[in-house]
Structures are given as C-alpha cells and as structure tokens.
C-alpha cells in the first residue's frame, strides 16, 4: 500500500472515529432548556448560525475560583416559560466547582472573565429558517447533557411573549 493510501486511510479513520464519537456521545443524556441572547453571523466552513449567549453563563457571584476548567451546576427555575414547543423550565447556574460535587445536573465549562463558555454558543440552521431572524433573548435552547457533563444543543424554540 502506497504512502498516499495510508494517508487517505488515516484521514478516513480520523473522521470515522470522530463521527462515531459524536454520534454516540449524547445517547441517554439529560435534557435542559436554557434562556438565550442571540445574534446572527456566518461561519466560513459551516454556514449560517445563530450565535447564542446564555444568562446561565454569567458566573459572577458564584465564586468559581481562578481555574479555567470548571463544572457548573444547573438548576431549574420555579416557573415554566411558554415556548413554541410547549411550557419548559429554564435552567440557571446555581453553583460551580473544579469537580462535580453532589447530585443534580453538572456541566463542563471554560471560565473566561467571569463568564462560562459551554461549547454550545452556536446553533447552525438553514439560511431560510425564520428562527434566524429571531430577536435577541427571544429563544430558548434545548440542550443534551451527557454523563461527562458535555453539552450539545439540539434545538431552539421561540418563547411566547
């Protein structure tokens, strides 16, 4: 087998393993809904997306410590919010720590200047999708949380004002 074919096989292996990990990484995950503040840019490689920021990313007042890699505990609000997908409980950041401590839903985050970066700050969608033009703060994001605390956004729904 020539070095070119070995290289091609290595490339396919990378994408196959990565694809398999992404396909299987969020089976049997917990579901949380997060409130959002969107804007609308475009990615060179992947197309249109809504850039999302979350009130749950505001960690000021939680005393998370100086370390960049942290876990944030999410707890539901007491009052449900009406969305196009029915009433949902929005989650907020209740605590943070270097490790998971106790029960509840803990998610992995990067701490940056008092804000958490969860890795769910983009939601890619079709450029004809009307949600693309949703006004700031008018969306709720449906997020899967696996056992390792990794999050993946699966849907956004407009809130009924």
């Amino acid at each position: 087998m020539s070095r070119y074919r070995l290289f091609l096989c290595a490339q396919i292996l990378v994408f196959a393993v990565w694809g398999a990990k992404l396909l299987s990484g969020h089976t049997n995950s917990a579901v949380v809904w997060l409130d959002t503040r969107p804007v609308d840019p475009r990615d060179l490689l992947s197309g249109h997306y809504i850039a999302l920021s979350y009130p749950a990313a505001d960690l000021r007042g939680l005393n998370c410590g100086p370390q960049p890699d942290i876990f944030v505990k999410l707890e539901p609000d007491s009052v449900p919010v009406q969305t196009m997908q029915g009433p949902v409980l929005l989650y907020h950041a209740a605590a943070c720590s270097a490790e998971k401590s106790g029960g509840g839903i803990w998610v992995r985050a990067m701490q940056n200047g008092g804000n958490a970066v969860y890795g769910i700050e983009r939601f890619y969608l079709n450029e004809n999708n009307p949600i693309r033009f949703a006004k700031s703060g008018n969306l709720a994001a449906k997020v899967l949380v696996n056992s390792g605390g990794d999050m993946r956004i699966t849907a956004v729904a407009e809130k009924n004002q």
Partner: peptide, 22 residues
C-alpha cells in the same frame, strides 16, 4: 475535504467554540 468534513460535522452536531481550531 478535511475542511468540508469539519464544517459538516460542526453543522450536523452543532459544535461551537474555538474559531481557529478547525
């Protein structure tokens, strides 16, 4: 092709984060 693949995976699995890593 790797750029196409990374972009496709990012879109399909809603991957966010570092803009330069891809």
């Amino acid at each position: 092709m790797p750029a196409i693949g990374i972009g496709l995976y990012a879109q399909v699995f809603q991957l966010s984060g570092d803009p330069v890593k891809p």
